[in-house]
Nucleic acid binder design. Sequence first.
DNA 1: CCCTATGTTCCCAA
DNA 2: CTTGGGAACATAGG
Length: 280
Amino acid sequence: MPELPEVETLCRQLRPEIVGAEIVATRVIDSKLGGIRGLKGRTVKGVTRYGKALEMELEGGGSLVLHLRMTGRLLWHKGNGMLPWNNRKGMLPWHNGNGMLPHTRLVISFPHGKISLIDPRRFATATVHRKGNCISLGSDPFNGFDPSHLWTIAQQCTLPVKSFLMDQRRIAGIGNIYACEILYQARMDPWRRINGLSPDDWAAIGQAAQEILTRAIACRGTSVSDWRDLFGNAGEHQNYLLVYGREGTGCYRCGGRIERRKLSGRGTYYCPTCQNHEGG
DNA sequence: CCCTATGTTCCCAA
DNA sequence: CTTGGGAACATAGG
């Protein structure tokens, strides 16, 4: 669920809370996450985003990389970080009997608070890296987005432009919602083959991506379903969506009917009337 | 029962 | 080798 703006929101909210703080305990509730070891006693040096992945860098090398996949959330609980997990004083008003929210999969404790990973569908991953990070991703729309480079690598590729935008090895951080929004903003048909795009088309995509994603970050993400920020608050960007979820309603630009079709199995919202540009 | 879901990975076919 | 499609993962909601 969380795409670039949602993960960026978590990074920005986490930094003031945990940078410089020592991890005093970790607890894995869902063994599907695998072993999370060697974090106790380590101090968080920084929090960084790579596409949709969030990395907590540790002093002395190494890091913890979290990927929230479809339904993962992080929630900060202020205080009580060193209390026993089932201590009544540490319970939240909506705990499920053991002091934790339902679907809590991992807890990372600091002296002054703790982070819960909450994930109903259990697709989220957490991995400890000994040195640096092992993330292999493309550049993201804010960092190293090079229209002429994209044009070059797109020349021998016939993918629909939406599939290309969502390929994390090419461009990191864009998922289904923002791919729909960016292509609408760029007036581009999601099914358009990328080997037909000009350098100007790529520049337009890059600009649309920065506009859409910047606004979404300022809104602390899109809460169309269950996305919440680090403090449990809904984002605001669902109030500014241009096409996603608008099937059957009128296009804000031309009044045409917004359609929804599947592209590689994903619901794709678009305006057939004004997202049909060929060339620049 | 059906379908849908903000993501990634694996398998398989062309 | 590439690409593209579908299923799988596991769960909730309509």
